[in-house]
């Protein structure tokens, strides 16, 4: 549901950007040829967020189990979550404003569809996890503290019903995202080590050739 919504709003925003004059120059460049790599901003954001997301998932588990470390773990979990939210928005804007490498032309259509679908599902998770985390803090009467003195405003009023839902959704999303990340990593390594088709290097600094498609990917 949410990813569909994202897809729609993604393309709508892209259309809007295309209609704005100052982006026209850039658009001509986009249409000329597709790059081999994601743009530098996109690659930096990808690897930075990968590190943050994986660490904050383990920090989350640690703070729900550790006898000794919860106070400092939660003090890390919240600012990292807020950073992910901020970076996710930045990344989304960067993603829709810039061309991305094409998938190999001999890749089955269904796989391409899957790849694009999961791509947007992960965006939805990266956005929903910090929002539900922040929301559950507010609904539970807790503060979203970036530091002892920097306290974010409450997203919603204290409310046990919303706390129950948001807490469970946050946990469910986090567990799902972990397995998605493991799958994502495994498939990425499969492309890097076995297929060697340029998909992995499109997110790194390598210049492996991707078999060019004639058309731009839809998503």
């Amino acid at each position: 549901m949410s990813q569909q919504k994202n897809l729609k709003s993604g393309s709508r925003i892209r259309e809007w950007f295309k209609s704005v004059k100052i982006f026209k120059l850039r658009r001509r460049h986009i249409n000329r040829s597709l790059p081999l790599n994601f743009n530098l901003t996109g690659r930096i954001l990808h690897w930075l967020m990968a590190t943050l997301i994986l660490s904050t998932m383990f920090i989350g588990l640690g703070m729900m189990t550790s006898l000794s470390s919860r106070p400092w773990l939660i003090d890390l979990h919240i600012p990292i979550g807020v950073a992910i939210l901020f970076l996710c928005i930045l990344r989304f804007v960067n993603r829709i404003m810039n061309p991305i490498p094409a998938l190999p032309s001999d890749m089955p259509k269904i796989e391409k569809k899957m790849a694009h679908f999961m791509h947007w599902v992960m965006y939805a998770f990266m956005f929903a996890l910090p929002i539900t985390g922040w929301g559950q803090l507010s609904a539970g009467g807790f503060q979203a503290k970036l530091s002892q003195n920097i306290i974010l405003p409450s997203l919603i009023d204290q409310n046990p019903v919303l706390y129950a839902w948001l807490h469970d959704i946050h946990r469910g999303l986090a567990w799902s995202l972990f397995f998605i990340v493991v799958g994502h990593l495994s498939i990425a390594l499969l492309h890097a080590l076995v297929m060697k088709d340029g998909i992995f290097s499109s997110m790194t600094w390598g210049k492996d050739k991707i078999k060019k498609e004639t058309k731009r990917p839809s998503a």
């Binding site: 729900m64 006898l67 470390s69 919860r70 106070p71 046990p160 706390y163 129950a164 469970d168």
Partner: peptide, 19 residues
């Protein structure tokens, strides 16, 4: 430090029931 986590579990359990 342990109380922090234990209180969180107690809180989550009872607020879920209310919610």
């Amino acid at each position: 430090t342990a109380r922090a986590g234990i209180y969180a579990h107690s809180y989550n359990a009872r607020v879920r029931e209310i919610g």
